[in-house]
């Protein structure tokens, strides 16, 4: 089975790399992390910045060069870039995943592929595998762009290649967590696309869920009963999974207070990935395939 999925994954990339959409989305990912980086840089240079710790935010004054360097030196700057890239990257990958599968129905190309004897299971598995690979690529490219910006920022202080007190291994762990934290959103978008057979509807459902969930988490945060189930909500589980040791979360899905611990979050996210992907495979395998829908 793997022997069939890997060549199909390569072919998925062959198709995708000739589309403009992934390159535009990648450009957006880089642009957004750069905006976040240089906005922070400007704030630090101006001397005032809002910092959050353990969910409580306050405004403090950064006046020493040491503090400045701590935020923008390697690898802390890269970890911060990873945090931003993960947040935006998840949204962009949802759009890409929904488009990748929805357009196959819209153009009618799914039928063309299946009539050449391509198994449905391997075809969907190849798409999922490529999307997982893209999540790695998005994070690498975005973080690499932050590395360049970080070097430029440090050069403005004649302090190039100064290391922060953070551990480089944290960056590696954070990278792995960020990738895994994107998978449930990819699975959600894939399931929505397979269910609706439409890229537009799938993008709407995926992004709608993402933002509505964020709003509901904040609205319902005051209820005791909600706190008991909050750890099982996708956005909260992602926040719990990718939160840094300082208590600052990668995610902005509500307050960071009371987030589930990493192990519970891992299991919840794994359940989301398995259930959503399984449902997508089940529908994809069983559904009859029609011609182009003109989308």
């Amino acid at each position: 089975m793997i022997a069939q999925v890997l060549p199909l994954t390569r072919l998925e990339w062959y198709k995708l790399r000739h589309r403009r959409m992934p390159w535009i989305l990648l450009g957006f990912a880089v642009l957004l992390v750069q905006i976040a980086f240089w906005a922070s840089y400007a704030l630090f240079r101006s001397g005032e910045v809002a910092v959050g710790e353990g969910g409580a935010s306050s405004t403090t004054t950064i006046s020493t060069t040491d503090q400045f360097l701590e935020m923008f030196a390697f690898p802390t700057s890269l970890t911060n870039g990873l945090i931003v890239a993960h947040g935006f990257g998840g949204i962009l990958l949802m759009i890409l995943a929904a488009s990748l599968i929805g357009t196959e129905y819209g153009w009618g190309t799914l039928r063309t592929a299946l009539t050449k004897g391509t198994g449905r299971w391997p075809l969907l598995a190849a798409k999922l595998l490529m999307l997982a690979g893209l999540s790695v690529a998005v994070l690498i490219v975005a973080t690499a762009s932050v590395a360049v910006s970080s070097a430029i920022a440090l050069a403005t202080l004649d302090a190039v290649w100064i290391s922060s007190s953070a551990d480089w291994s944290d960056l590696g762990i954070g990278f792995g967590k960020a990738v895994f934290g994107m998978l449930p959103y990819i699975a959600l978008a894939v399931f929505a696309a397979v269910l609706t057979s439409s890229s537009g509807a799938a993008i709407g459902i995926s992004l709608g869920y993402y933002f509505v969930e964020s709003i509901l988490v904040n609205v319902l945060a005051g209820f005791d009963w909600f706190q008991r189930v909050a750890g099982f909500i996708l956005g909260r589980a992602v926040s719990g999974w990718v939160q840094t040791e300082t208590g600052v979360s990668f995610q902005s899905s509500g307050t960071t207070a009371g987030l589930p611990d990493a192990s519970q979050s891992f299991l919840v996210l794994l359940a989301y990935v398995v259930v959503l992907s399984g449902a997508a495979f089940w529908v994809f395998q069983r559904r009859e395939v029609a011609g182009a829908r003109g989308e």
Binding site: W107, G108, T109, R111, T112, T115, K116, G117, G291
Partner: peptide, 15 residues
Amino acid sequence: ALRRIGAIVETPAFY
């Protein structure tokens, strides 16, 4: 069997 078959169904759909 499908690998030994060539088919066009309705208007051919390509990328």
